[in-house]
Design a protein around this nucleic acid. Structure first.
Lengths: 207, 207
DNA sequence: CCATGTGAATACATTCACAGCA
DNA sequence: TGCTGTGAATGTATTCACATGG
């Protein structure tokens, strides 16, 4: 199947960033060509799965040879739309917000923090990394003015839903949610939830 | 199926922490009883799925009534083995490590940081939250001495694999990995990987 | 000959729909 | 009656295995 106009399962989309990450690592090691077999070993998915996943989007490999790393990397970046950089709003200037503001891994992978917001008057106007913390009251209009469509929620659980509502009002369509609570948003808005404790709990089951 | 000695799919285990989180929220609101329907609305899974997931472990509800929240909460905590608190090692005293050290959401959900390690001589001996940063050279024996089986990796990608190797040597069997790289560990060791950028990339696909 | 790309087969997960019981 | 618990039915995902072509 090489018709890109076909429905691609969400679970496949979720693996593409991992393929991309592995390819970037390989190319940083100076490698030029790889195979579904090698990626399989690095990532822990079967080689057949990798080939099938890629086949949803076209034919990227050469039979008998494998995949040209740079080409596949570029293709995946375009598929995931991270060939250009997305400006993000970061909401929450606590410890987590601070760590995210200082994280240097965003830009190379397609994201950049454009503004930081918080509700606490004590924090507004202070510097966090290279940004000055903005009042959340101004968030909606700034999102609109700067055409920001991606945001990170790093506020306590109790505040997360109202922040999400504001983000949606401001035109945000992708939310990375660090608050340990389920958000309700319109269907056009995507939410990716990060809950480290849930991850830990699902491991202790096996201990 | 009410025989607990049956194989439970990993995907089911992964949802239990979310059920638990929702139940804790409900009970903190003073609620005593809930239903698969209500949990379904709060969490976005179908009610049939919630009932079937729970049925792997026994019968927790009353027909015609629903689930007694406190009882189901307690049962899930026991299934996930978070009815007692796990001591954790945190490796990496950077910004992320700092945020994790100050995070107050671990303890109520079954985890506590017991020690923080770093390789940077500048950081060793300094205070981070309530902990003094320990040299990574001493990590292995401290893990053994304190019977620590759970750890968090919050170091740069380049250092993550060697940290993981040390953790495994020290007897750790569950690793929460924040480094953007795949770890290779023996099969008895569980790894839960957190990659916020991968989450963002899987959302921008849809924008 | 080697590794891709892919239909077909298998395995797994979710939903349906209803019997059974408070 | 109302909601659980669960076999059966359906729907999805993964793996198999091989034709294809560099």
């Amino acid at each position: 199947m090489s018709n890109p106009n076909h429905h691609v399962p969400a679970i496949v989309i979720g693996r593409l960033p991992l393929y991309l990450r592995a390819l970037t690592q390989l190319s940083s090691e100076g490698r030029r060509v790889t195979s579904s077999q090698e990626l399989s070993e690095k990532l822990g998915f079967s080689s057949a799965q990798i080939r099938k996943d890629l086949s949803y989007f076209g034919e990227f490999g050469k039979q008998g040879t494998g995949y040209e790393i740079e080409f596949l990397e570029k293709s995946l970046r375009e598929i995931l739309q991270v060939h250009h950089v997305w400006e993000m709003a970061l909401v929450g200037a606590g410890d987590l917000g601070h760590a995210l503001a200082n994280y240097d891994g965003f830009e190379a992978r397609g994201f950049r923090i454009a503004a930081i917001f918080d509700a606490d008057p004590q924090k507004i106007g202070t510097l966090m990394g290279e940004w000055r913390v903005q009042p959340i009251e101004e968030m909606r209009q700034m999102l609109r003015a700067q055409h920001i469509h991606v945001a990170i929620i790093a506020v306590p659980a109790a505040a997360a839903q109202s922040v999400a509502d504001e983000l949606v009002e401001g035109g945000v369509r992708a939310i990375l949610n660090y608050a340990p609570t389920t958000l309700s948003v319109p269907p056009r808005v995507k939410v990716y939830h990060i809950d480290p404790v849930a991850g830990l709990q699902s491991m202790t089951y096996y201990l």
